[in-house]
Structures are given as C-alpha cells and as structure tokens.
C-alpha cells in the first residue's frame, strides 16, 4: 500500500518566557495506508506534540507535513478545521466526551459535521453499548466511556484514527477490549484505515505493524514489525 503520511524535518518550538524549547527537533518519517502504528517514547519525548500536528490541532514551527498527498502544514485554521472534520478521528486518555449529552447524542454529534456518517446506533452496537443509549457519561465506567469515544471517532469513518494513551486510564482487561476495537477499525474498510496510537506502554508495540520510537524530540527508530502478535497473545 502507498504512503499516507510523510514528515519532513518537522520542528515544533515552544517559547516559554525568554527560553525556547524544541518539542520536536527535526522529525522525518513515513507511515503507509492501513497500518496499525504505535508511537513509543518516555514522557517529554514529543509524542503528544506529534499527534497534535498530525491531527491538525497545532501547527509546526517549520518543516513539511504531507497527509494523503495534501501538505497540511500550509493550511490555515479554517482549512485545518475541515481537515479534522473530514479525515481525523480522535481518542483521548480521558475520553473527552461531552458530559451533558447522552451516549447516543455524543455519537450523533458527528451528524453536525460530516455528511455521511455511519449510523450512531449501529456503531454503539458494534462497541457493545446498545443498552446504554440514553445514559449520561458519568453513569458509565471508564472503559464504557472510552468505547463511546471510539464510537464517536469511527462514526465519521476517518482516514486516520489518532489515539493518545487510549488505555492509559483503564485496567488491563478493559484496555485489551479497547485495543481490539481499535484493531478492528484498522482492519475494516478493506484494511484501508490507518490507526496511530501514542503511548509509553511498550507492550502495545508488540501488536503494531509499525513502531516509531521518539526520544528528545527526534525519531530514534522507525521499524516495521514483520510478525505482529495477536492482541490476545500479548501477556498484559
């Protein structure tokens, strides 16, 4: 399959007072369509910054980011918003679902931004929440909330699913369930969907097609995993 993502010498500099700090310090890598990617690194390595750039939530200080043939590093705010709306699904460590909307409403929210979203009820069924349509988020367990978040992300059938420590706040059993769902999303749609997971949990890397290691704002390694393990096989 062809290349979906290309980072060319991407830098992201934060100015804190008079000092400046390079969160990303000249990052180059590529990711192919349909891959299940894990980005690994200790805290402060620049993982979240990388994800934010990928998701169009933040702009690079310099360098080029090409996604699906489009150079998004040249986009303005409004173009980035459209880019996010059409192509990106997000999953956060703390779920970020709206507390005043019910489970179903949180997923249906997508109807307001995407033209042909998947049926919210159908997706909630797929993630096993068909019994909780009318509940509010605070009535759900952490794993259930994360599944709402996943349902919301995949409802728009995104080209790219970005996950920031998706299992970070969950116990291991629930974490496995969540990973399975993410893998399933990656494999659906004839294996065209790309999923990127940012984590410091190296165990997850064992199931990935590709593992990118970050350290001090630079790519330490970018390896293809020839024989990814099945999720059940990993010893959590």
């Amino acid at each position: 399959m062809g290349e979906l993502i290309r980072f060319n010498n991407v830098k992201k500099t934060y100015n804190i007072g008079e000092k400046s700090f390079n969160a990303l310090d000249g990052v180059d890598f590529g990711i192919n369509k349909g891959e299940f990617v894990v980005i690994l690194g200790p805290s402060g390595a620049g993982k979240s910054t990388l994800l934010n750039l990928l998701g169009g939530m933040d702009k690079a200080t310099s360098g080029e980011i090409v996604i699906g043939g489009e150079t998004i590093s040249n986009y303005n705010d409004s173009e980035l918003t459209d880019y996010r709306a059409e192509n990106i699904g997000f999953i956060f460590q703390f779920y970020n679902i709206l507390p005043t909307l019910t489970v179903l409403e949180n997923v249906e929210l997508i109807n307001d931004i995407v033209k042909n979203p998947k049926s919210a009820k159908q997706i909630l069924k797929e993630v096993g929440l068909e019994k909780h349509y009318n509940k509010f988020p605070n009535q759900l367990s952490g794993g259930e909330q994360q599944r709402v978040s996943i349902a919301r992300a995949i409802a728009k059938n995104p080209l790219l699913l970005l996950c920031d420590e998706p299992t970070g706040a969950l116990d291991s059993k629930t974490g496995v369930e969540v990973l399975k769902l993410l893998k399933k999303q990656c494999d659906s749609n004839n294996g065209e969907n790309t999923v990127i997971i940012v984590t410091h949990n190296s165990l997850i890397a064992e199931v990935a097609d590709r593992v990118i290691k970050l350290k001090n704002g630079k790519v330490e390694s970018n390896q293809i995993n020839e024989n990814p393990k099945k999720i059940e096989e990993v010893n959590w």
Partner: peptide, 11 residues
C-alpha cells in the same frame, strides 16, 4: 473537544 472533532469556530 468540539473543535478537535472538527466543529467550526462559527458553529
């Protein structure tokens, strides 16, 4: 969150 999901500022 809405912004991340792709909601426009205007909306």
């Amino acid at each position: 969150t809405l912004k991340v999901l792709g909601f426009k500022n205007k909306k």
